[in-house]
Write a protein that binds this DNA or RNA. Structure first.
Lengths: 200, 200
DNA sequence: GTCTATAAGGTGATAGAC
DNA sequence: GTCTATCACCTTATAGAC
């Protein structure tokens, strides 16, 4: 592993754990097993380092999703694919959504350009929902409400992990893991039930 | 308004906007229209000031909820009360959940004692759900899954506001407000639909 | 490329005048 | 109670030897 890759991995870890302000160059250097000066040798400043890390974070995610959306026409099929797929991605990058939310609310300009199109392929899914409603396959619901419902059910339990472990599971990490193992199926069932067409 | 109240209001604002690390005593002083020294005169340290702020944040919330839970036996009735009530509280304190989540994941010890019992009256609601399942009033679902579903649908759109405004609504603040105005009803409908007993 | 040393500026906290 | 001035420390960034 090159020094540069080494730094990137260390920085990703620290940035995402501490946020931009909380992350210290010294801590990144320690984590990478080098010294501060070398950080500035490879990446002129903390800002530059940050941008490099962040712009790469979502690059694995969006192409896959867009492709799947192009191949799929049925909303239920897409949801059954999307929920475990996105859950899995976020479980592998558990601090990422919280990090994005934090940075967007503290310094929107820093990552707005980066985040705008890379977080979620919104328009395609939106059209799919509109169509499903028009065809009476699901109950009437606004695109945005349904999309936020899905994202909320997936993302919240991961972002709020420390809160949930503390308040709901009394600091019991095993209970939380147990809970998360069943989460994906539960979200699918919750979503599909919630949009079933109403009986007349 | 006394200087002390002044400081508390300013500090609440800044802490919740920037997190513990990001909040600077100078910024709090500016926001309060005084100087740094006076902060330390009233509250010995940044830590002390922080504790004072935080421990007061939830004190209005929990008593009301507990009382309502004692008065209510029907789950649907409670949900119809709880969703708009909690939504309203969080809209008035929009940065609070994000703040708690952040601080819990960055320095759990700092607020664990404060947060543990004050965020949510979990056990009472849990028993109510167990009973509703046993009586076939709702489909089989684990208490924790349902409670997290409810909290997720309420809290996420507020915590993730900057992300949603950016990605879903193209920086259009009015669209977001419009979305939030309908949110409470939508959450109730989503939740109640999602737990309807299954047909045989 | 990698290091040590240090500059330049910020941050929490205190001393002391009024 | 409120202020100015200042201390001690920390953080980013750079200079310069190897």
């Amino acid at each position: 592993m090159t020094t540069e890759e080494n730094i990137i991995n260390a920085a990703k870890e620290v940035f995402v754990r501490k946020g931009f302000q909380g992350a210290k160059m010294q801590e990144i250097a320690n984590e990478a097993g080098i010294n501060k000066a070398l950080l500035h040798y490879y990446f002129r400043s903390k800002e530059k380092l940050f941008e490099q890390i962040f712009s790469g974070a979502f690059q694995q995610l969006i192409p896959t999703l867009s492709k799947k959306l192009d191949e799929t026409t049925d909303l239920e099929t897409f949801i059954r694919f999307f929920v475990p797929f996105y859950t899995n991605f976020i479980q592998k990058n558990p601090h990422l959504p919280q990090f994005i939310i934090n940075e967007l609310s503290q310094n929107p300009d820093r990552i707005r350009n980066l985040a705008a199109t890379k977080v979620f392929p919104f328009p395609k899914l939106s059209r799919m929902i509109t169509q499903a409603v028009a065809e009476n396959k699901i109950r009437p619901i606004e695109n945005e409400q349904l999309i936020i419902n899905i994202l909320a059910l997936i993302i919240f339990p991961i972002v709020a992990k420390p809160m949930i472990e503390g308040v709901i599971f009394n600091q019991n990490a095993e209970s939380y893991q147990n809970f998360m193992a069943k989460r994906s199926d539960e979200v699918i069932e919750t979503i599909l039930n919630s949009i079933k067409p109403q009986k007349n």
